[in-house]
Design a protein around this nucleic acid. Structure first.
Lengths: 251, 251
DNA sequence: ATAACAAATATTGTATACATATAATAGCAA
DNA sequence: TTGCTATTATATGTATACAATATTTGTTAT
């Protein structure tokens, strides 16, 4: 595993210079800005490690050693440890006290469980969105839908994945339930780690388009129950493809 | 705020004695046991603080200061900091970098959001339970239901709350989705912090009994859709009572 | 009195030191 | 060899030291 060039992070710490005593208003303003940008090292390390785990750069089962990570990142053990505590609570790593920390494995069972839940939550999101979406959000939704269809037509896979994610995010935002958004985000982390793409290659593009169409129409027509039903169906289908992809790969 | 008698925790650290070189098998066995029981200080601190926050012993908005907490608990800042990182990820505290850590506020909006989600998840739990429950789990469920009804008949409020929680837990266990269990647990923390009891005093006992009856019958009959519907209704009603309790209190 | 600045203080952020436990290795007896 | 103990190395757990920032207090000039 390669965590990037050594001492990469140290700069961001040393950059912070000591106080200048008499300063202009402009300097104060600049200072305030740089403060707003300030992130503790533990945050940087946390995000870095999370990214590395989710993308698979650090593989499941691999051990995370504090000293080694600290040296690679050019920081001390303290921020690394604090970052690891958060990863632990997110379920990305497993701690065995006094033994060490290991990147947790994601089984197909875990993914099935998560998607089972996501079926419900996506249904809820669409239901609430149909109830609460505002006009400008609806416009945004329709626009994103068109963009997605264009990506589908162009067979631009990475574009499809991106636009699809954005589309779902717009719906969740429109549902006006921040807790729901956070919950989904946390859940999907597990799925992302599982190597199959969320938008399966076998999920026929034409079907995908139709499914979205139905959901969006229902939301537009403020038909809550229909929106819920179609959204649930949509994820249910995606789930089936992911599972069958997995089985295919297992052969 | 009083976090208990000073130096309370230090014992658990000092208890761990240095190694005895030649030891019997029995001693090894004892050692293994004490190891399995071993919890890092950060865990103890974490659980302690979480409990204190959930019960309201530490109030929303209150500041958590590392040195003070460490002194009160008789530990150093390190385990306290690591515990706080976890509380932060759970949303129980809010961190402002370089400023401090504050116990997060729980608004009625948050509670509404959580319960909105819980309606869906409880429905999902009952649905899956109806599909997957095993005979012994069903027996356990029926037994708990009787116990709950007894508590209701006796007007034993704390008994009702306890049995109700246990009943719901049995259903979720039967759903065979561990992720779902963890998710619900995390979510309900927020509601518990909100001072209204989850089983509202205004939720008529007779209704409560009927609602449970319907859910359990549906599960028993393996009627998934009905189980889902009744479970959703049940939480929806509870949600209404909690919200109206809140409004009443606000007067 | 009050605003602005400066010094002092308290608190968080980070690094390091020390203690203890686990793992790995080597030596030794049966 | 095999199994045990002793030894060493390495990693984690905890405490403390140091650095930088925020906050409070105090002082001075207006």
């Amino acid at each position: 595993m390669n965590c990037g060039s050594k001492k990469l992070l140290r700069m961001s710490y040393l950059q912070r210079q000591s106080r200048i005593n008499t300063r202009s208003d402009l300097m104060k303003e600049l200072d305030k800005l740089s403060l707003e940008n300030y992130k503790p090292l533990r945050e940087i390390v946390f995000e870095h490690l999370r990214e590395a785990i989710i993308t698979g750069e650090i593989e499941p089962g691999e051990r995370l050693m504090e000293i080694q990570l600290a040296e690679n990142l050019g920081v001390s053990r303290t921020p690394v440890r604090e970052a690891i505590r958060k990863l632990e609570l997110e379920g990305l790593v497993i701690m065995e006290p006094r033994k060490g920390v290991y990147v947790s494995e994601v089984s197909i069972t875990d993914v099935k469980e998560v998607l089972e839940i996501r079926v419900s939550l996506e249904g809820l999101g669409a239901y609430l969105a149909a109830e609460r979406i505002k006009d400008d959000e609806l416009q945004e939704l329709l626009k994103k839908h068109e963009e997605l269809n264009k990506s589908i037509k162009d067979r631009d896979v990475s574009g499809i994945v991106r636009k699809d994610t954005e589309l779902h995010n717009i719906i969740f935002k429109a549902a006006k339930n921040d807790t729901l958004v956070d919950l989904i985000d946390g859940l999907m982390e597990q799925v992302k780690r599982f190597r199959v793409s969320y938008v399966s290659g076998h999920h026929k593009s034409s079907d995908l388009a139709k499914e979205h169409e139905k959901i969006i129409c229902a939301i537009k027509n403020r038909n809550k129950e229909a929106a819920k039903k179609y959204a649930e169906e949509h994820i249910e289908i995606a789930k089936k493809y992911i599972v069958s992809d997995y089985n295919r790969e297992k052969l």
